[in-house]
Amino acid sequence: MSMQSQDIIKRSATSALTPPPHARDQQAEVAKLIDVSICIGCKACQVACSEWNDLRDEVGENFGVYDNPRDLSAETWTLMRFAEYENSESGKLEWLIRKDGCMHCADPGCLKACPSPGAIVQYANGIVDFQSEHCIGCGYCVAGCPFNVPRLSGKDNKAYKCTLCVDRVSVGQEPSCVKTCPTGAINFGSKADMQFLAGQRVAELNGRGFANAGLYDPQGVGGTHVMYVLHHADKPELYHNLPKDPRISTAIQGWKGWLKPIAAAAFFATIAGTLFHYVGVGAQTLDPEQEDEEEQA
């Protein structure tokens, strides 16, 4: 099933001079909207994700909290993170539960950082997918992700993360976590529809006294294809340290961004200089004695 190669708009370690086929990229961008305000933290999404993707993480231990497994891993692609928050304004306890996992950024830091051609791709519908057979296990994607999502597998030294169930989406189904969500806290559709729905949800939350409710669709990464409705959108860090203004790190921006054309130019200049030198000056010659001396030195 190589049809997706037609729909790829970005590939890791590929320059604009050799772009992927992109004649057929007139697709609606998709998005998953996670409404934290009606999420019960049941972990159905977590189980459904592992079930659909044939993942079975280790049976771990309890660390004194509800978060299990303790962290994302190569075999846990989404994870409920729990935070108890005493709201000093309302005087009420709030249990903020956030489904963590890949945000499918419009401008994916992982893809940008990846040095292996085609190991990370972005489809026209916005899904960012890892092509594990091309993964070289360098871990740059982990460093490149502003949300700390990809994980390297100890078994095969390849990186893994949520695919937004690209295998389901590509045949017209919703992702597994979306379908299973008991309360409808996870929705899926076109990004425009999800933004519209988020607007309705925010209005409803405003009506219930959450004046700072809002949509989390951070523009620092070009927006995301997984978005949150938060009751406290002004303080995303309350939700188990969801970054307030996520950006791709300057190093990667530099290295893979503006440095890249300069590097390319320098590269060609070096090659050209060497060539001109060879043609114009010729190869340097050494007499054998001199070489012997150098060898013994």
Binding site: M1, S2, Q4, T14, S15, V121, Q131, F267
Partner: peptide, 25 residues
Amino acid sequence: AASASAATLGFAPGVALASQSRQYK
């Protein structure tokens, strides 16, 4: 180094790199 740089900069030949999502099961 030149080859590696060329590859890193995206000038690698497009062999066996057809991307594909997982088969729908």
